[in-house]
Amino acid sequence: MQDSGISILFKGVNFQRLLGGLWVTMRIALITIALSAVLGLVFGLVMLSRRRAPRAICRAWLEIVRFMPQLVLLYLVYFGFARLFGWDLDGETSAVIVFTFWGTAEMGDLVRGAVSSIPLHQRESAAALGLTPLQASRYVLIPQTVRRLLPQAINLSTRIIKTTALVKMINVTEVLKVGQQIIGQFYRLREAPFWVYLTIFILYFLICWPISALAGWLEKRWA
C-alpha cells in the first residue's frame, strides 16, 4: 500500500463518517445552546432579583462552574452519577446535562452583566418622558440589553461548540474518535495522523469562525 496520507480521507466513506462524527458533537452543542439560552435568561434575571436566597443559589452554581473544569463535571455525571444512583446515562445525555449546567451559568452571568450595564439614567429618562415601566422596558431597556448581550451570547455559542469536543474523553464516538478509527485502518500510519487531525482542526474552524465573525460584526455595528 503506497497511499500517501491524505488519500486516506477520500477512501470509501471515511470523510462522510468524519462529518458524521462532527454532527454528533454539533447535535450536543445545538441542544445545549438552546437550553442554555432559555435557562440562562431565567438564571440571569434571578441573579438580579432582590431576594437573597435565589441569588445565593445562583452564586453557588456559578462558583461550582468556575472552579471545576468541564471535563471533571462530565466525569462526575457520566461515571459518578452512574455509580451513585445507578442511572443509565449515555455519553451524549451526560454531555448535554453537564454543558447545559455550565452554559446556563455563563449565559446567566452575561445577561446579568448586560442588564446591569445599562446606566440608571436610561430608566430615569424614560420615566421623565412619561413612559410606563413596561414601555420603558420594551422600547428603551430591552433593545439596549439585547445589543450588549447578543454578541457575547454568540461567542458563548462558539465556546459551547468547542467544549463539546470533550465528549471524546467519555467515549462518545465523535469526530476525533472516527479520525482515530480511520487512522487505524492503515497500518502504515505514516502521514495519516497529520492529515486526519489537520482536517478535524480545519472542520472545527470552518464551523466556529463564521459564528464568531457574526458576533464581531454585530458588536461593531451596535457599538
Binding site: 470509501g12 463518517r17 478509527q181 480511520i182 487505524g184 485502518q185
Partner: peptide, 8 residues
C-alpha cells in the same frame, strides 16, 4: 481483531 474499514 476489531476495526472499521473504509466502507464504515
Amino acid at each position: 481483531f476489531g476495526y472499521v474499514d473504509e466502507n464504515g
